[in-house]
């Protein structure tokens, strides 16, 4: 990609500047209003009190701001919430690991196929993924129903893996496809066996793909509520279900907002880790 300083950025006349604002302002305003403002509102709501009939209590009580760390204290004071967060992390980790184990051979095969065949094999990965999310979950109700496996943690993980697998396969494939086959040939000429070549060359080189795939699976799984609800039992609920409950059933918005903020913090931390770890290291190739 040829990066040139965009023309006119420096010597922009009035017309150029006007164009720039006319083009960038509408989407910016829209997202400020409907993405950033709601996000900030949620942050603020996490410090407020629940209203008597759901929703939020008045912000001003007797002329004083009615803000507190109450819901955060509540969260950290009750082991059950930490347990559900922990369970969500475990489910996300298990899902990511299984996705990785399933995706790797497939991605490797596609990357090592002839160029003409690759597109077809990739399309075959994307196609089932194009059907509606709920249909893919529903399919597992039918598959697992006869085996008495429905409403178990196993069913939840099966559904999670099924729904998120392409997110692991595609980045892995994109990475593996770029590997230079000459490296493997050289290793073979030097007497390295298949396993050694994989462990010393392919695997280390594919780490960026593994990291981005893992982030793409782990993060959405962490916030998922529909799969535990449809495939899991009452004891399999995750953070997503807890959040949904606060907003739609209990109508305890401050607690729901607090849980959402904690989930956001977890997601941001994970994304930062993945970006940092996935950065291709220099000198390893």
């Amino acid at each position: 990609m040829t990066e040139r300083p965009s023309a006119g950025a420096g010597r922009s006349g009035g017309g150029e500047r006007l164009t720039r604002w006319l083009v960038s302002l509408p989407p910016t305003l829209f997202l400020l209003l409907f993405f950033l403002a709601p996000a900030l509102l949620m942050l603020a709501a996490s410090f407020r009190q629940p209203g008597d009939f759901g929703g939020l209590a008045p912000l001003l009580v007797d002329g004083r701001l009615n803000l507190s760390l109450e819901t955060y204290r509540f969260f950290f004071g009750d082991w059950i919430y930490a347990e559900i967060f922990l369970r969500s992390f475990l489910v996300a980790a298990a899902t990511t690991l299984i996705c990785l184990l399933l995706a790797y051979p497939l991605a490797l095969l596609i990357a090592r196929s002839e160029r003409r065949r690759r597109d077809v094999l990739v399309l075959l990965v994307i196609l089932p993924f194009a059907s509606n999310f709920l249909i893919r979950v529903y399919a597992w109700i039918i598959v697992l129903g006869p085996f008495d496996l429905l409403y178990t943690p196993l069913a939840v993980i099966a559904g999670m893996v099924y729904v998120h697998l392409p997110f692991m396969i595609l980045p892995l494939y994109t990475n593996l496809e770029k590997h230079d086959p000459a490296l493997l040939e050289a290793a073979q000429d030097l007497g390295a066996g298949g396993w050694t070549r994989f462990r010393r060359i392919t695997l280390p080189l594919s780490m960026p793909g593994i990291w981005s795939g893992s982030a793409l699976v782990f993060i959405p799984v962490l916030g998922m509520f529909a799969i535990p609800e449809l495939l899991g039992g009452t004891r399999d609920i995750l953070v997503g279900n807890l959040i949904k409950e606060q907003f739609l059933d209990n109508r305890d918005w401050p607690l729901g907002s607090t849980l959402s903020m904690l989930l956001t913090a977890a997601v941001l931390a994970l994304a930062a880790i993945a970006v940092r770890a996935g950065r291709p290291r220099r000198g390893t190739a």
């Binding site: 960038s24 509102l41 729901g256 907002s257 989930l263 956001t264 997601v267």
Partner: peptide, 30 residues
């Protein structure tokens, strides 16, 4: 405008439920 990618790409990357509940809150409350 350097902040624009953040504004544009974050909704794509974050778990959907977060966008859902924050919009619910915004629509009802504000």
């Amino acid at each position: 405008l350097r902040a624009l990618p953040f504004l544009v790409l974050t909704p794509v990357a974050m778990p959907e439920i977060l966008l859902g509940v924050s919009l619910l809150l915004f629509f009802r409350q504000v």
